[in-house]
């Protein structure tokens, strides 16, 4: 028998993999796929914006969505600015004392003379006390 014939015999006698080995190899493949899928899910979740708390989401929805909430927020900030900028006016309007002073305002506030001399108590800076401060800053 030649060496080449011996090689052929060895080729024919090559051991076949056991069922256990095939199962282990397939299990490894499954594990690699599962790991890769988990990593992909984690990567996508990391890229996605964080989910808001359901209570917050429900409140926003009840108020009419984010546009309505933005409008409310703007109105709130504007109200706060007015309150801080002209507290006396807000107090006057809130307490109803504006009506009492309206008569004297009618008769005297638009008088060019009195406005110029500053004698009237209902000048522009009475209604908006911080007007001149704002004007000087602007």
């Amino acid at each position: 028998m030649s060496l080449d014939a011996l090689f052929k015999e060895v080729r024919d006698a090559t051991p076949l993999p056991s069922g256990d080995l095939m199962a282990r190899v397939l299990a490894d493949a499954e594990g690699v796929i599962a790991t890769r899928e988990a990593e992909e899910v984690a990567r996508i979740n990391a890229l996605r914006p964080k989910q808001r708390h359901p209570v917050v989401a429900a409140m926003v929805a009840a108020l009419g969505g984010w546009r309505a909430v933005a409008g409310l927020a703007t109105a709130g900030v504007a109200g706060l600015a007015i309150g801080l900028g002209a507290p006396m006016t807000v107090t006057t309007l809130a307490t109803g004392s504006y009506a009492d002073s309206a008569a004297s305002y009618e008769t005297t506030s638009y008088s060019a003379t009195t406005y110029a001399t500053g004698e009237s108590g209902n000048a522009l800076d009475d209604l908006v006390p911080s007007f001149y401060d704002l004007a000087s800053e602007g």
Binding site: T14, L16, P17, M22, V25, I33, R36
Partner: peptide
């Protein structure tokens, strides 16, 4: 992510790999 491809490759390549390593 194709699991059937894994099966086909296992059937095809594992005998070769084992035969060589056993030698």
């Amino acid at each position: 992510g194709d699991r059937e491809a894994a099966r086909a490759l296992t059937m095809r390549l594992t005998p070769k790999v084992l035969g060589y390593s056993a030698r």
